[in-house]
C-alpha cells in the first residue's frame, strides 16, 4: 500500500466515520521543469525531517486549499465543481496517491479508487489473467476473486472472450471489466472519478444501479461526476468546490442547485469580462493617423462605443448569440 503511517494512537477517527479530511491542502506548480525541481526539493525536505509547508514558491498555486469534511459509514457524497477546482486532487489525497502539503487524511477499511478503469491491465494477457492482476492491484486477495469470478464475468458481459487477449476487446468491454472487478468485491469506501462518463447508456445505468446496491450494503461512495442525475440518484450530500476551496456542503439537491448558481455566476463574470475587453478594444485610442474613410465608425462600433456602460451591449449581443 501507499506510504501511509498507520497511526492508530495519535489520530482518532470517530467510530461512525469512514473517512475524514482535516484542513487538507495541496499545492502544484504550473511550470514543468520548476515543478520537477520542487519535487526533488520536497523529497530532500522530507528526508531531513521537515513536513509539508504551504509557502508558495514561484509559479505554485493551491489546488486544494484547507479542505475539511467527514464521510459517515454508508454515506455517499458528490464532489462537484468546474474543471480544475480541486475535486480530483481531493480524491487522490483520500486514496493516498498524493501526500498532503498540510492537514490530515484518514480512512477506515478497504478503499478502492476508481480513478481510471482497468489500471494495470496488460493487453497481451487474457481477460481472466487481467482480472486477477487488477484485483491484486486493488489489494483484493485471489481467493475472493475466485469466489466472485463468475459474477465479475457476468457483470462485464465478457462471456466467451474471457480467455482471449485483452487487446482483442472493444474499449467498452475493457471498461466494463475494470468496473466489474473494482466494484464486485464490495469495498468499504469507493472513490469514483468521472468513470461513469465512459461506456454506453446501458452500461451507465447498470453501473448506477450497482453503485446503489453497494450503497445499500454499506459501502460509502465519493463520486465526482458532472452528470446531475447520477449524483442525485447515488449521493446524499454535495460538496461544491470552487478554486480549491469548499464552496458549500449541502444536501444533494440543494448542493447541485448551488453548483448551478455558481456556474451561472462564473459564466456571467466571464461574459462581462469578455464584453469589457471587447469594449476596451473599441475605445482604445489610436496612435496611428487614419484616413477619414477608415475613421468612419462601423455600425457595431457605434453601438458599443456610444454606450456609457462600456461593453454592456456587446455582452447582451453575445448572450443572445449563446442562447
Amino acid at each position: 500500500m501507499a506510504p501511509a503511517t498507520r497511526d492508530r494512537s495519535s489520530y482518532k477517527l470517530p467510530p461512525d466515520t469512514i473517512a475524514s479530511l482535516s484542513h487538507v491542502s495541496k499545492k502544484y506548480c504550473m511550470k514543468l521543469k520548476r515543478s520537477l525541481a520542487f519535487g526533488v526539493q520536497d523529497i530532500a525536505r522530507e528526508l531531513l525531517g521537515y513536513g509539508g509547508n504551504l509557502t508558495l514558491r514561484k509559479d505554485e498555486f493551491l489546488a486544494v486549499d484547507d479542505v475539511s469534511f467527514d464521510l459517515k459509514a454508508g454515506e455517499s457524497i458528490a464532489l462537484m465543481g468546474r474543471n480544475g477546482s480541486g475535486k480530483s486532487t481531493t480524491l487522490k489525497l483520500i486514496a493516498g496517491l498524493l501526500k498532503p502539503d498540510a492537514g490530515t487524511v484518514a480512512y477506515r477499511g478497504r478503499l478502492c479508487p476508481l480513478i481510471e478503469l482497468g489500471t494495470g491491465f496488460n493487453p497481451i494477457l487474457s481477460g481472466r489473467e487481467n482480472i486477477y492482476i487488477n484485483a491484486a492491484v486493488h489489494g483484493i486477495p485471489g481467493r475472493d476473486v475466485k469466489r466472485l469470478f463468475d459474477r465479475i464475468v457476468d457483470f462485464a458481459e465478457i462471456g466467451d472472450f474471457i480467455d482471449s487477449p485483452l487487446r482483442t476487446y472493444s474499449s467498452g468491454m475493457t471498461v466494463r471489466l475494470g468496473f466489474a472487478i473494482a466494484t464486485q468485491l464490495k469495498p468499504d469506501l469507493l472513490i469514483v472519478d468521472e468513470v461513469l462518463a465512459v461506456g454506453d447508456i446501458a452500461f451507465k445505468s447498470k453501473c448506477v444501479s450497482h453503485l446503489l446496491d453497494l450503497k445499500a450494503q454499506g459501502t460509502s461512495i465519493v463520486l465526482v461526476s458532472h452528470i446531475r442525475s447520477h449524483a442525485a440518484e447515488i449521493c446524499d450530500r454535495t460538496i461544491v468546490f470552487n478554486r480549491g476551496k469548499i464552496h458549500c456542503d449541502l444536501p444533494v439537491d440543494e448542493g447541485m442547485d448551488e453548483y448551478e448558481k455558481l456556474l451561472q455566476l462564473d459564466e456571467d463574470a466571464r461574459l462581462r469580462s469578455a464584453g469589457e475587453t471587447e469594449g476596451e478594444k473599441f475605445r482604445r485610442p489610436r496612435t496611428r493617423k487614419k484616413s477619414a474613410k477608415r475613421r468612419r465608425p462601423r455600425k457595431n462600433r457605434e453601438l458599443v462605443a456610444g454606450n456609457d456602460s462600456s461593453g454592456e451591449v456587446a455582452v447582451r449581443r453575445r448572450r443572445r448569440r449563446t442562447l
Partner: peptide, 24 residues
Amino acid sequence: MEVRVYSASSQVRRPLALFRSMFR
C-alpha cells in the same frame, strides 16, 4: 477495520513506524 492516516508531517520523524509499515 484498519485506519490509514496520510499527513503532511515527515515520515522520517517516526522511523520505527516507517520501518514497521515497510516490512508489513
